[in-house]
Design a protein around this nucleic acid. Structure first.
Lengths: 252, 252
DNA sequence: AAACGAATTTCGCATAGTGAAATGGGAGGA
DNA sequence: TCCTCCCATTTCACTATGCGAAATTCGTTT
């Protein structure tokens, strides 16, 4: 790494924080080492620092996110008000379509779930905030790529696959108003999803709203006729409420 | 600073993130420099790094918390479920007592508000998540100190004032079940508050629930007879729901 | 006791991060 | 168009900082 501007220690420390998932009930050093690929000595130093600052707290030798993380979280949440705005409609959408609804942001080469809404009264697949989905070959990722403006997309130095997926997504968006990866091309055999990007001006990058379910619950026909249009309408309404965002002119 | 274990760059980077408040509509470098006391060159490097990682996003030369912060926030929030558990009761408490209810965590020498509940249908003082209140001479701070166990308290290398405030708080907690700083000793002439610590086992440190209002709306008598007891009962109920926490045995 | 696994400390070294100062760039005025 | 501020950014030389391999400590299991 020969980027004089890039603060390595900071990046490593943050990668420690990002190693935590909702489903973890505390992490040991060993687990953090595994997830971050950093050396034991480094982890000790970084976790020591993060504990001092209140970003981590320790019980025995289990680490959890600490009070400072919570404080940051509250500011971050309150500053991105559209999430709360979307809450009611997304819950309703999940229940009505019997799918898991979700909101995701990009994190490196994955999309990280930020919020999920479970349909009331039905069993469904269930992922939690902090879970990740690859960008490549997922509907959520495709929506993200399609929503990204040219400059930012090129900045990712994308390969041919990404380019293909992006333009496929853009075509679907302009004709249908939502995007999905068809069965054979999907990264996962067990989840099928529809997605639509939302350009959050606060964040400088699109986020993605999506609905997912097991493939036998969510046929291509159901996506095209029911779930896709419903999702599209919910997100369009959100765009309307927050003011039509610039940067997504090609979206229907 | 001669602590070989402490990663300075990480701490500085995090102090940049902590500089953001809900009420800020984006920060310039200049503002961040002012708040953190770091040099311009350092800020450029750190913000560059944070942008690369998605923790900040930039519009013009205004910086905001970015998608990665949101992702971290969602994990952090979901991992501290007691906040959601408390939500309904705190909202109700705010409305019933016509005070602003709040939850705060420690951040250095201050308490940072994490969540606030505004009474429905009445005007009241209003602070937002991310706002800070000093530990010294505030009811919220006093509750925190009183809730802190001896080891952690000593680790703060407290002065005599803090010790006094802590034992005052502890006395109030064991007799009344809540704590407040009386008029003359308060840090602020414009806010009066009652508080009670809650020992969040997830966080390894107490958090504080409190009710605040302008002094003429919240006399000592009202605190003692109405608001204090109501707050105490709400937090006790939360303790019950989450399992009686260890570490607060002296609290009534 | 012994033998493991995990976390922490030590330590010499390369370099990453630092701040002062110089440079660049954009908005506003004349 | 050309100044002039005001920020943000880059440059640069220095050294404190953060690095990892290896040694050590701490706890748990056999």
């Amino acid at each position: 790494m020969t980027d004089r501007k890039f603060a390595n220690t900071l990046a490593r420390g943050l990668s420690v924080l990002r190693a935590f998932r909702v489903s973890d009930d505390g992490l040991t050093h060993a687990k953090i080492i595994e997830r971050t690929g950093l050396s034991p000595a480094t982890i000790t130093r970084l976790t020591y620092t993060l504990k001092e600052l209140g970003f981590l707290s320790q019980t025995g030798n289990l680490l959890r996110l600490g009070p400072a993380a919570l404080a940051l979280a509250s500011v971050s949440n309150a500053s991105t008000s559209f999430v709360d705005l979307a809450d009611g409609a997304m819950q309703e959408l999940a229940t009505r379509t019997r799918t898991m609804a979700l909101m995701a942001v990009r994190d490196g080469a994955s999309m990280t779930l930020v919020r999920t809404w479970r349909p009331k009264g039905v069993a469904s697949i269930w992922l939690e905030p902090g879970n990740r989905v690859p960008i490549l070959r997922s509907s959520t990722g495709q929506a993200f790529l399609a929503g990204l403006n040219d400059g930012r997309f090129e900045a990712m130095s994308p390969d041919e696959t990404s380019r293909g997926q992006r333009s496929e997504g853009q075509t679907q968006l302009s004709t249908l108003g939502f995007t999905f990866v068809r069965g054979s091309a999907r990264y996962s055999k067990t989840v099928q999803a529809v997605a639509r990007p939302f350009y959050a001006s606060d964040l400088g990058e699109p986020v993605v709203f999506a609905c997912g379910a097991m493939p036998d619950m969510l046929s291509d026909a159901r996506i095209l006729e029911e779930v896709g249009p419903a999702l599209r309408d919910v997100v369009r309404d959100l765009e309307f409420k927050t003011g039509r965002p610039r940067g997504l002119d090609h979206v229907n």
